[in-house]
Amino acid sequence: MTQLNNGITLFFSLLVEAMPFLLLGVIFSSALLLFVDEQKLLGMIPKNVVLAALAGSLIGFMFPVCECGNVPVARRLLTKGAPTAVAIGFLLAAPTVNPIVFWATWIAFREQPEIVFLRVGFTLIIATTIAIIFSTQADLRPFLQESLTRVMGDSAAATEPGEPLVSPLLSSGTFLMQSQGQVLQLSAPAATVMAQVATAPPSLSIRLRMMMDNMVLELRELGAVLVIGSAIAAFVQVAIPREVILGLGQGPVTSILAMMALAWVVSICSTVDSFFALSFASTFTSGALLAFLVFGPMIDLKNISLLLTVFKGRAILYLFVLAAQLTFLLTLVMNLYAG
């Protein structure tokens, strides 16, 4: 009975601590999705692959979304002609490298600031590395779902963003003559075409209603996942004997593997996962906590269904294996040499 009461108290404690951050995340992401122009943003991305990968990883600071919100954004970036390095970097890093997640991690781990900074650092290293690896594949299309490649148009027409504007008529393709000497390139990515022919943006009141709709939608879904995640965390704390957890949590290798597996299964939103990890802070090695905080937001069980809307299975497998190996390696080094 005591155990049950403790479990429920723990459960509500996690919910009460995490909900404000979930709310802020949802509000910011809804506002920014509607008010930030990704096309302009892409124009500012450097052309160098390494810099582009890093820039993609850092865009998260402008879209404070967690892993549930970032897949749709990455998808839209791809349809708008973002280079591979940018899209992959964004996909992997944005859930962690953003102000709200940073703040939440800081509150949870203010006694161990190294966790907060290493979380961001490791994520940037891993995301940039994988983004560079993926960008050696010049054309990402074979990795993407067909529904997405159709929207992207054919590769010849996909222009690099940030390219100096030459008359579009100098390049090959199908064009429609528009008013005022403008031309519309029909073979360009569909999203670009849509952007050019789109009517005036919706009025502010409509946009605010759309924002409200989006907020409620995200809160409903992420809130439900938060509830399930908190319940699992509370259950593990009170139901599994402490000796078992300690035995698993103190080994430099087993602790990391256990936390990565947990991160993959629990699929808790990155805005609030630091509080989940906090409940293991006294029993697990710091490297294991970091593995949880770095790997979880990149790829987890829930996220795979989302990733499948963008990538084919093979590409997700590559992403998963690369992210898992790099996380394991970095956190193991930390456990062995810094712990």
Binding site: V71, P72, I206, G223, K302
Partner: peptide
């Protein structure tokens, strides 16, 4: 309802998440 702002992929069935919350 207001026009949908973006495509959205449901993680859990709507009834389940609302019911749970």
């Amino acid at each position: 309802p207001a026009p949908r702002s973006q495509e959205h992929i449901a993680l859990l069935p709507r009834q389940l998440s609302v019911g749970l919350l």
